[in-house]
Nucleic acid binder design. Structure first.
Lengths: 200, 200
DNA sequence: GCCAAGTTTTAACGGTCGTTCAACTTTCGC
DNA sequence: GCGAAAGTTGAACGACCGTTAAAACTTGGC
């Protein structure tokens, strides 16, 4: 039953065009500027057609988040499995575009239940990956797990990167560049200690 | 010239009632839900009267931010001057209501120039206070300023507190409680080391 | 008590929003 | 080529928005 014919070839491409346009609008004018009409105009179609692909605006936000978070989870897994996990993690967390988009999605999610659930699930999944990797990693970096447990280290890296990138993007004069440089040095220091211990 | 008669006694109180209502709406439904009509309804007046006190909605947002940031600056100065500066700072940065409001203001500011300028100024001022205090404080806590410069420590505390409180408030399952507990222990540890060094 | 200034409301403007519906066009499978 | 499904549009709905203008009211100082 419900023998739905298969969609035409171009429709998947149009879905991605809509998601791209939505991201662009969120970054330029904020999530509040996303509307069926603004997105439609950006890709050169009429507003009701947006609802053909994404029945409600919430569905559109959720789709943007899901496409994005899928990539983030993959890239985080790669980073944590790389030869210099902390460095790779830090680089990933410092991505300006991803951070800016995350700010918008987080703010939007705070008052949209469907989006909030998705954000929560991604946050949980990413944090679990990070903490699991840190369980064995902290020893190698020579960090005392009693003083610096995985939950603290993970939250610190993520929170620090977020604050630094946000201030840099907004142009706030909070010595963010200096903090970023110091963090890079600190991480290089830790990676060195690890490679010496493990390699020599 | 412009011999403006002085306003009546009740008007200052009404201004604060409007600011209170605006904060409440921002926390409950997000900054996008703030409108002259929603704020007016919350305090039992008509929409145009909001514009009598705050000509534009931007002015209203800026007023909310200014009232809030004034308090934050004062409290941060007190915290940094207290006997256990790191502890007091951490407690202040962990305030859930302040953090939630800040999320909304930050998101709103990203695409409203007037608000953005105000947020930037507050951020700069607070960060400068923190870094200035850390210049002499780091030694007392026994932290190497080359590895952990003031800019890094300040950004870390602020970013970590933000992430932890945000996840706690949203109910995201990211071991935020565990991270907060570990940070409290770490700070207590540092304060102990300082009081021993200085007191004994 | 009066009147000028401060305060408040009513009414309205042009605009945007999410969404629905019916009609229309295009494409695919046969 | 034709029929049916996929895709697309135009029109419209009720709702909310920021803001302005003018009229109504309230209050304080004299």
């Amino acid at each position: 039953m419900a023998e739905r014919r298969r969609p035409r070839a171009a429709t998947e491409e149009k879905r991605t065009r809509l998601l791209d346009a939505t991201e662009e609008i969120m970054l330029r004018d904020g999530y509040a500027a996303v509307s069926s009409r603004s997105v439609a105009a950006a890709v050169g179609i009429q507003a009701p057609l947006v609802h053909y692909y994404f029945p409600t605006i919430d569905d559109l936000f959720v789709a943007v988040l899901q496409r994005r978070s899928g990539r983030v989870v993959d890239r985080m897994a790669d980073a944590l499995a790389s030869p210099e996990p902390l460095q790779a993690w830090w680089d990933l967390a410092s991505d300006p575009r991803g951070t800016a988009l995350f700010v918008e999605l987080m703010a939007a999610a705070n008052h949209r239940p469907a989006l909030k659930a998705e954000v929560g699930e991604v946050a949980r999944q990413v944090r679990a990956m990070q903490m699991d990797r840190l369980k064995t990693l902290l020893d190698e970096y020579g960090l005392d797990p009693d003083l610096y447990p995985p939950a603290l280290v993970a939250a610190t890296i993520q929170g620090l990167a977020f604050g630094v990138v946000q201030d840099q993007a907004a142009g706030y004069d909070t010595a963010a560049d200096e903090a970023a440089a110091a963090m890079s040095r600190l991480i290089a220091h830790l990676e060195d200690a690890r490679s010496v211990e493990g390699g020599a």
